[in-house]
Simulated assay, not measured.
Amino acid sequence: MKYAAEFRDPTAARALLARIAARAEGLGATRARPIRIMEICGGHTHAIFRYGLDRLVHEGIEFIHGPGCPVCVLPMARVDECIEIAERPGVIFTTFGDAMRVPGRRGSLIAARARGADIRMVYSPLDALELARRNPAHEVVFFGLGFETTTPSTALTIQAAAREGIGNFSVFCNHITVPEPIRVLLEDPHMVLDGFIGPGHVSMVIGIHPYDFIAQDFGKPIVVAGFEPLDLLQSVLMVLDQIAEGRAAVENQYARVVPERGNPVSLAAMADVYERRPSFEWRGLGEIDASGLRIRPAYAAFDAEAKFGVGYGAPGRPAAPEPEAEGCACGAVMTGRMKPPACPAFGRGCTPETPLGALMVSSEGACAAYWQYGGARAAAE
């Protein structure tokens, strides 16, 4: 396990935990008045619980789980539009597995498949493009969703379809961007945060400078982190060091993977294929300006919204966000106002087998992380 085992070394972890404890005590952090650090990425949330870091760090450190799960923030109306497209005659609808069980008003994609829709799980948009090549009599639609991590692969696939002139392939674009919702959270007067652990995979694409506003405009430290336990512990210590030194900056703990300016090939493909939407709805956060991407007119032939007449501005689309299922507190959990066990549905009406909300469905959802690594204990707390 080269390049993984060295970031899981128990001796090094104990040394970092001791340094974190010393810093936290020096800052006067206690369980009653903790230093609140938000990990933006759902992958970090799962790593924190997988390795028990929430229980190992000093009691004056509290992890706040951010909206860093693209499946979890998908609004119900978009799920309904997926089903509407998938149920049309002659359509093969393709998606990543995480999106199959996200509930909308009309159920989930997996329920639509049970009703007869041709919905298939794929591992990449290139798999969907290959389906289009092999099935020229069908319209093949790829459900493009995710943050900047997955956005380039969809863009490159659209470019490939355009070069080949494949007319029966399109993308239902639901790609979203990370920095904009963080600004919304920081502008919320009820949100108390002392620092951030920045997403590693997203930053691999966009670099670290899109987060400059967090330090410059709001005076909060942010450290882009890797996903192993030592990565996360070092990142926590780096945030605490900034607080202790009275400064706020964007720092890169994950420099072995994340380039300062991002990936130029990915950024170029994204700029060619996408443009910003004026706004996009986030489950739990509402409409956020310039936080979503749509396909540029030059690639309209591969835009499922244009091809099927769905999406923003389409007739019959709800004007206001759909409310969550009764008893579901996904919005409060996603914005750090509530921990999953405090949700009245957690472990009762909402479990991985019978999920009420997206946070229990996705492999990166906070509720799924609590359940997987805490289970009945977390539900009883």
Rank of each mutant, 00 (worst) to 15 (best):
L156T: 02
A345Q: 09
H175R: 07
F142Q: 00
I243G: 03
A4T: 15
Q159T: 10
A271I: 04
Q242V: 06
L356C: 15
C328Y: 05
V71P: 00
L74Y: 01
Q234W: 13
T351C: 03
A342N: 11
G104R: 02
D127S: 00
S279I: 02
A18P: 06
G327H: 02
V141K: 13
Y254Q: 02
D80E: 12
A342K: 15
E81G: 09
R296Q: 11
Q372D: 15
H138V: 01
F280I: 07
E287P: 14
W282N: 01
L185S: 08
L145W: 05
R294I: 00
P297N: 08
V122S: 09
E305C: 15
P221H: 05
F302G: 08
P352F: 13
E251F: 12
V258Y: 10
P89G: 15
I166M: 12
R36F: 10
I48W: 15
F7T: 12
F93D: 02
I243K: 05
Y370P: 08
Y373D: 04
S153Y: 10
P278R: 04
M338L: 15
V223G: 03
L27K: 05
E62R: 14
E130Y: 07
V250L: 08
I176N: 01
E281S: 05
P340G: 15
L240P: 03
M76C: 11
L193P: 07
G167W: 06
T150Q: 02
A306N: 13
I214Q: 01
Q159D: 15
V184K: 13
I119N: 00
R14F: 01
T30H: 11
A77N: 14
C69P: 09
G262N: 12
S153C: 03
R163H: 10
V171S: 04
R276A: 13
H175K: 02
D212E: 10
L293Y: 08
E251Y: 06
P10C: 00
I20R: 09
G365T: 03
L285R: 09
G198V: 11
A248C: 11
E62T: 15
E139R: 14
A249H: 01
P70C: 03
E62H: 12
Q242C: 05
G365Y: 04
R8N: 14
P136R: 11
G116N: 08
P229T: 07
G331R: 09
A329G: 07
K307Y: 01
P89V: 10
L230F: 03
V202M: 07
P355E: 10
A215N: 02
A319Y: 02
P136S: 06
G246K: 00
D217M: 03
D127L: 07
E59W: 09
S108M: 06
Q372P: 00
D98I: 02
E281I: 00
V122P: 04
C343Q: 05
A86Q: 05
T149V: 11
A269W: 05
E164L: 14
C330R: 07
Y370F: 15
I158H: 06
Y274R: 03
A29Y: 13
E251G: 09
T151G: 02
R283I: 08
V140I: 13
L109A: 06
V102D: 05
G90I: 07
N135W: 07
I64N: 06
